[in-house]
Simulated scan of single mutants.
Amino acid sequence: MAMDCYVAICNPLRYSIVMAQRVCIQLVAGSYVMGSINASVDTGFTFSLVFCKGSTINHFFCDVPPVLALSCSNIDNNIMLLVVFVGFNLIFAVLVIIFSWENIIAAILRMSSTAGRKKAFST
């Protein structure tokens, strides 16, 4: 969404070329690939644990930390892996959004007409 907004405001005449169907498919595929890698690695490390505290998770949905709480083995590696993946995903997403909005604001401020600038900021 950040890239879509950036291209729409900073390069409106090239929008249909830059945001072609191929690019949109690549963005979606990248999200799915990163999510699959994250889930696969996390699941693999979770399967290597020994569980002995029962099988009831007192949560609405099965998330990683409640499952790790049921383990009797050392979960330090799993916690570190979880922090690294979540940190990478968070930092990467925030940097992409900040970069795109920075470029959007710079493009709007470079506009010569006040009315165009006002319209762009209101959008």
Rank of each mutant, 00 (worst) to 15 (best):
A2N: 04
A8C: 02
I9W: 05
C10N: 07
P12A: 13
P12V: 13
R14A: 05
Y15P: 01
S16R: 08
I17E: 10
I17V: 10
M19T: 05
A20T: 13
A20K: 10
Q21P: 11
R22L: 00
V23K: 03
V23E: 13
C24P: 07
I25S: 07
Q26F: 15
Q26Y: 15
Q26S: 07
L27D: 14
L27Q: 15
V28S: 12
V28Y: 15
A29S: 05
A29G: 03
A29F: 14
A29E: 15
G30L: 04
S31Y: 09
Y32D: 14
Y32L: 01
Y32A: 00
Y32Q: 05
Y32F: 10
Y32I: 01
S36M: 03
S36F: 09
S36H: 06
S36E: 15
N38T: 03
N38A: 02
A39S: 13
A39E: 15
V41F: 02
V41I: 05
D42V: 15
D42W: 10
T43L: 14
T43Y: 13
T43K: 12
F45L: 01
T46Q: 09
T46N: 05
L49C: 07
L49F: 04
L49T: 08
V50S: 11
V50A: 06
F51Y: 15
C52T: 06
K53Y: 07
G54W: 11
G54F: 04
S55P: 01
I57G: 00
N58W: 10
F60Q: 08
F61N: 12
C62H: 04
D63C: 11
V64Y: 08
V64M: 13
P65I: 04
P66K: 09
P66N: 06
L68A: 04
L68Q: 07
A69G: 10
L70F: 01
L70Q: 09
S71L: 02
C72D: 00
C72S: 10
S73N: 12
D76T: 11
D76H: 03
D76W: 00
D76R: 02
N77P: 02
N77I: 06
N78D: 08
N78L: 12
I79E: 12
I79G: 07
M80Q: 13
M80A: 06
M80P: 05
L82V: 06
V84K: 04
F85Q: 06
V86I: 09
V86P: 00
V86W: 08
V86A: 11
G87N: 12
G87F: 12
F88Q: 06
N89Q: 09
N89L: 08
L90E: 09
I91T: 06
I91R: 13
A93I: 15
V94C: 10
L95H: 14
V96D: 08
I97G: 09
S100P: 06
W101K: 03
E102A: 13
E102Y: 12
N103T: 03
N103C: 11
N103M: 08
N103E: 02
A106P: 07
A106C: 10
A106N: 10
A107M: 03
I108W: 00
I108R: 09
I108F: 06
R110F: 10
M111N: 09
M111D: 02
S113Y: 12
A115T: 03
A115K: 00
G116E: 11
R117V: 01
R117P: 01
R117G: 00
R117I: 01
K118H: 07
K119H: 05
A120P: 11
A120N: 12
F121R: 04
